[in-house]
Amino acid sequence: MEGAGHGRGAGPSPMAGEQRQPQRQPGSCQVCPEQPADGPQQGLFSSLQTGNQSCQLMLLKTLETNPYVKLLLDAMKHSGCAINKERHFSCEDCNGNVSGGFDASSSQIVLCQNNIRNQAHMNRVVTHELIHAFDHCRAHVNWFTSVRHLACSEVRAANLSGDCSLVNEIFRLHFGLKRHHQTCVRDRAILSILAVRNISREMAEKAVDEVFESCFNDHEPFGRIPHSQTYARYAHRDFQNRDRYYSNI
């Protein structure tokens, strides 16, 4: 994260959409672009219970199998910010189309159980929010007072989470542009800032453009842009080998 030193902490922030629950103050927000149509209506209690159980099961599978997330969990632990499933994740119903958030004040990643509809989407949301948590752990991030700090973390999250993968961009009908990945990262970061900050689009664009080069090229803890799960597995292997190498010095 740009312009910050080392710190201690772990928690949640969202990606690009509307504000979530009013009692939460996330660092950023994300819209879920691929929500399928809702099925038959259920009773309120039954719906909440089913949604929470589904969220918990998808979260568990993500934590145990997704290579992006496994690398980030190892990196958080290595940095002194070990993540605990029961303590640091919360499945909740959210307002609007927000998928999740990183709440630095409570050190929790909030997962919007009413908006996360499938395993692939859960994988991306958890990855995105863990990148915010990693930035929060390793740096003194001024989430609420520095738009530049927020912009940097949003650039990193869009760049490294797989949110701008070719498959996702084709799904959004965005493809064929020169420097497409960079364009996607910039656009998603701007949307995320506008979702949680009452500022003009011009101010959000300015903040992203000011930090873009350095933050886009900051690939920690992956060491590279993981364009697919295969890349993420290679990055995880390299991280583990790097960790072993330094522990033997």
Rank of each mutant, 00 (worst) to 15 (best):
S28L: 10
S28W: 06
V31I: 09
C32V: 15
P33M: 07
E34Y: 14
E34L: 11
Q35Y: 06
Q35H: 07
P36G: 05
P36I: 04
P36R: 07
A37S: 13
A37P: 14
Q41A: 14
Q41G: 07
Q42A: 10
Q42K: 15
G43A: 04
S47P: 04
S47C: 04
S47M: 09
L48F: 12
Q49W: 13
T50I: 09
T50V: 09
G51Y: 02
G51T: 04
G51A: 05
Q53W: 04
S54E: 12
S54Y: 04
S54D: 11
S54G: 10
C55Y: 01
C55H: 00
Q56H: 08
Q56W: 03
L57C: 06
L59K: 02
L60W: 13
L60I: 12
L60G: 14
K61C: 09
K61W: 10
T62C: 11
T62Y: 06
T62D: 08
L63G: 03
E64C: 10
E64R: 15
T65Q: 15
N66E: 12
N66K: 05
N66Q: 12
P67L: 03
Y68I: 03
V69T: 09
K70I: 10
L71P: 02
L71F: 05
L73W: 01
L73Y: 03
L73E: 02
D74W: 08
A75N: 06
A75H: 06
K77H: 13
H78R: 15
H78D: 15
H78N: 14
S79N: 14
G80T: 11
G80E: 07
C81L: 05
C81M: 07
I83H: 00
I83W: 03
I83N: 02
I83S: 01
N84P: 02
N84Q: 11
K85F: 02
K85V: 11
E86F: 04
R87N: 13
H88C: 11
S90W: 07
C91A: 08
E92P: 00
E92A: 08
D93W: 12
D93A: 14
D93E: 14
C94R: 01
N95K: 15
N95T: 13
N95H: 13
G96V: 06
V98D: 09
V98C: 10
G100A: 00
D103T: 10
D103G: 02
S105W: 13
S105A: 15
S105L: 15
S106L: 12
Q108V: 08
V110A: 03
Q113Y: 09
Q113T: 11
Q113H: 11
Q113V: 10
N114Y: 07
N115G: 01
R117S: 08
R117M: 10
Q119L: 12
Q119S: 10
A120L: 12
H121V: 14
M122F: 07
R124P: 01
V125R: 02
V125Y: 01
T127F: 01
T127P: 02
H128D: 05
H128G: 02
E129Q: 08
E129F: 00
A133N: 03
F134C: 05
C137G: 03
C137E: 00
A139L: 12
V141P: 00
V141R: 01
N142Y: 10
W143Y: 10
W143P: 00
T145Y: 13
S146F: 08
S146W: 09
V147E: 11
R148T: 11
R148G: 04
R148Y: 14
H149Q: 07
H149W: 06
L150I: 12
A151P: 03
C152G: 15
